[in-house]
Amino acid sequence: MSELTVKRAAVKPAVQALFLVFRIGNERYALQAIEVVEVLPRLPLKPIAKAPAWVAGVFAHRGLVVPVIDLSALTFGAPAQARTSTRLVLVNYRPDETFKAQVLGLILEQATDTLRCNPADFQPYGLDNPQAPYLGPVREDAQGLLQWVRVADLLSEPVRALLFPYPPLDPALLEGRP
């Protein structure tokens, strides 16, 4: 084996991951593309009574009723703007290994770009934000800072119980209620 072959084998290529880039207002955020199931145009939703304001509603998709949250409303308290680039992004939500993955819809503004980079490029920003644990590390590039949104940390325990009750509600039990 030549010396060049040995050197090439010793150098490990940088790990690259694909991210879906979107905006909340003027700020850029990213979801790891491996968590994305499908990107849809914004669709009409059925509202959920008494749910938090950032729970946008539910819709039927391929035999499933999918809950949808508005990430702009969750993060900054203002709903996503209705733009042609506002998307309904379906993600696999799985808070930890003990839960079965569930499809969750996210309303995201300007969700039209992707970025391939090394996840290690994202660095902690030095603020522990227990009110928004889903806001992960940041990455600097020519356009400014890009923040990683961690899908597994999006929902608090009470909201997870509201959107994904366990065990699932049995419709037969509801028929006998007044």
Rank of each mutant, 00 (worst) to 15 (best):
V37Y: 06
P171G: 09
T5Q: 02
L74A: 02
H61W: 15
P79F: 01
P178I: 13
E109R: 12
Y29F: 15
Y29D: 05
L115T: 01
L146C: 10
P165S: 13
P95T: 11
T98W: 03
D121L: 11
L155K: 04
P137D: 15
R94V: 05
A111L: 05
G176W: 05
R42S: 13
I107N: 03
L18T: 02
R177F: 15
G176K: 15
L88E: 03
L64N: 14
P47W: 04
P133I: 07
L174F: 11
L135W: 02
T86F: 12
P158Q: 04
L45Q: 10
A111D: 03
P13E: 14
A17S: 11
A82E: 14
Q123G: 03
T112K: 01
L104Y: 11
R42Q: 13
Q110I: 08
M1E: 02
F122M: 00
A172Q: 15
D113E: 15
L154G: 01
P47H: 06
E140N: 11
V149Q: 03
D141Y: 08
E109C: 04
W54H: 04
F99P: 07
P44L: 03
K50E: 13
V21A: 01
V37I: 11
Q143E: 07
A49D: 13
T84V: 12
A10W: 08
Q32T: 10
E35N: 13
T112M: 04
T84A: 15
V36G: 01
T114G: 07
Q81K: 14
S2G: 13
L20N: 00
G126F: 08
P67Y: 01
P67G: 09
V91L: 07
D70E: 08
L74Y: 00
P167T: 08
K50D: 14
S156H: 09
P178M: 09
I48S: 05
L173C: 09
P44R: 06
L74V: 00
L146A: 09
E27D: 07
Y93A: 02
V36W: 03
N118Y: 03
I34Q: 14
F122W: 04
D170V: 11
T75A: 08
L104G: 03
P133V: 07
P41R: 04
A172P: 06
L43Q: 13
L104C: 10
A142Y: 07
P41E: 12
D170T: 06
G136M: 01
K7T: 09
I107Y: 03
L88I: 11
L146W: 01
A101P: 14
K46E: 15
E109Q: 15
T98N: 10
S85T: 15
L64M: 10
E97H: 02
Q16R: 08
